[in-house]
Design a protein around this nucleic acid. Structure first.
Lengths: 116, 116
DNA sequence: TAAAGTGGTAACCAACAAGTAACCAACAAG
DNA sequence: CTTGTTGGTTACTTGTTGGTTACCACTTTA
């Protein structure tokens, strides 16, 4: 979404889409909704995301103040991610969006199924 | 957002982002929140969108059942757009998102302003 | 000695989104 | 006969996202 251009747009929708409007961001936020997780765990939970894309997704979410990254200097290394307060306030909106979609997706599927 | 791939994903977040997650869609929906408008009017309201991009934005929103397109065969031609019921249920979510962003954007601006 | 786990990075590439500029049909008004 | 209006379309270019594959340091385990 040309993130860096829209981040400081004067339109709040452009700005929030710069934070949320990419393929994996809402999913990553949702995955962290009630837990802290390590890089590898997030990767496993989501399944189909590549490591490279997960890396940049996490980095951008951290930049935007949505999540915290904590590095433990152990061996093998451990890095944990969890939502910030700002990130947490996003959860109800994400859930509402998913609910909205589900309702209308169901409607559509039902229509398709009952048409001859 | 690779719209056609995610439209029928089994993840509701991918599906709703396929509908909403592009540069202009939330803005167009918001512009039509309480009125019907013609192509040229939408173009004027939004200002910086190109006619080509507005055309595809409107077409996709119509395909996804978010808005109605009504063509009046007059001269010069008249085409009106307005939200469907499904589209209207999206408005409170869009407003919430904008509000969410504004709150945290203000916070950030205030912090920047009060730092030496 | 070799393999495996962790959290990445680098190089490269295909697909898509978005933008620019010119153009169109159809008629009405001047 | 030219100009304006409306709602687009076409061709072309650029920018961004997401993806693949290979690779890295470091240490523990087998």
């Amino acid at each position: 979404m040309a993130r860096n251009i829209f981040k400081y747009s004067d339109c709040p929708m452009h700005r929030s889409m710069a934070i949320l409007g990419s393929k994996w961001k809402p999913i990553v936020i949702y995955a962290l909704r009630e837990r802290t997780a390590r890089f590898g765990q997030i990767h496993a939970i989501i399944g189909s995301i590549s490591k490279k894309v997960l890396t940049t997704t996490l980095k951008e979410l951290e930049e935007d103040g949505i999540l915290n990254r904590t590095e433990y200097r152990e061996l093998p290394p451990r890095v944990e991610y969890n939502l910030t307060d700002k990130g947490r306030t996003l959860i109800p909106i994400i859930i509402q969006l998913a609910k909205w979609d589900n309702e209308h997706y169901e409607e559509k599927r039902e229509k398709l199924e009952t048409t001859p």
